[in-house]
């Protein structure tokens, strides 16, 4: 039997992309983990803190710790929420429970890659060309892939995982590390720049030959999909958990 895992499903995934939550849960269960989704969960507090309103995150953070401190590990299909819990959970007193939560929270890709060390997904097959999008939190905060600005040796945890899926092919966009422009509240306060960045991002993947954009972050994809649909860029979106869990499309 595996660890006791608390599953956190970010608010926008709960509301708009339930399939991503389901795929994450089923995938972890398939890998022999004991997963629980505490149903009272709300949000990690990131939107308020990123806007600068740190004290307004306190209630969300306290609730999060209350619900999750009893688990061995907390796993979530989101890089930015993971980064928030790990690096920015500062609105509340740093008790042992808070420290436990911060130290044991994982984004799904890093949990699969680093903790469970899974490399094969024999049940999965995805005979399509995909463009991989790393959110900036996953890339530059969690460091799940090498960053082009630093010239470090190339690695990519999400690509390593996806390489264990039958039939998958990768497209190479011209600007793989460029931010897609979601940026949380940035997407509304800087609407024009945000939407333009999103459009440029989906076009880059489309021109590289991607049929799908795959990412570990649904928030980026929610924004990118909105830009693609408005501008009739013919590209589809899928969360990495869905592919790894054996989605057929």
């Amino acid at each position: 039997m595996g660890m006791k895992i608390g599953l956190f499903v970010p608010c926008y995934i709960d509301a708009f992309y339930p399939g991503v939550g389901i795929a994450t849960l089923e995938l972890l269960e398939r890998l022999g983990q004991d997963v629980t989704y505490p149903t009272e969960q709300t949000c990690c507090g990131q939107p308020m803190t990123n806007a600068g309103c740190v004290s307004d995150s306190a209630a969300a953070e306290a609730l999060f710790v209350k619900l999750f401190s009893g688990f061995d590990a907390i796993v979530m299909p989101s890089g930015s929420c993971t980064h928030h819990v790990r690096a920015h959970f500062d609105a509340i007193e740093q008790t042992d429970a808070v420290r436990h939560v911060r130290a044991n929270t994982y984004e799904l890709v890093e949990f699969l890659h680093d903790v469970l060390k899974v490399r094969d997904f024999p049940w999965a097959e995805f005979p399509h060309t995909v463009g991989l999008h790393n959110s900036c939190s996953s890339l530059r905060a969690l460091r799940t892939a090498s960053m082009s600005e630093l010239g470090e040796p190339a690695f990519s945890k999400p690509k390593t995982l996806l390489s264990g899926v039958k039939g998958i092919r990768f497209a190479t966009p011209a600007r793989p590390d460029e931010c897609c422009g979601f940026g949380g509240t940035f997407s509304v306060t800087e609407e024009a720049v945000s939407a333009r960045m999103g459009l440029d991002k989906v076009r880059d993947h489309f021109h590289a030959g991607a049929e799908y954009i795959v990412s570990a972050d649904s928030s980026c994809m929610m924004h990118q999909q909105g830009c693609a649909e408005r501008n009739h860029v013919d590209i589809r979106f899928i969360h990495i958990a869905e592919i790894l869990n054996g989605a057929r499309q």
Partner: peptide, 20 residues
Amino acid sequence: PWGKNRELPAPVKETFHSWY
């Protein structure tokens, strides 16, 4: 402003929460 240059996500039948 979200909708000026972007579509909104499609509505879903149920949330993850109620599925669970």
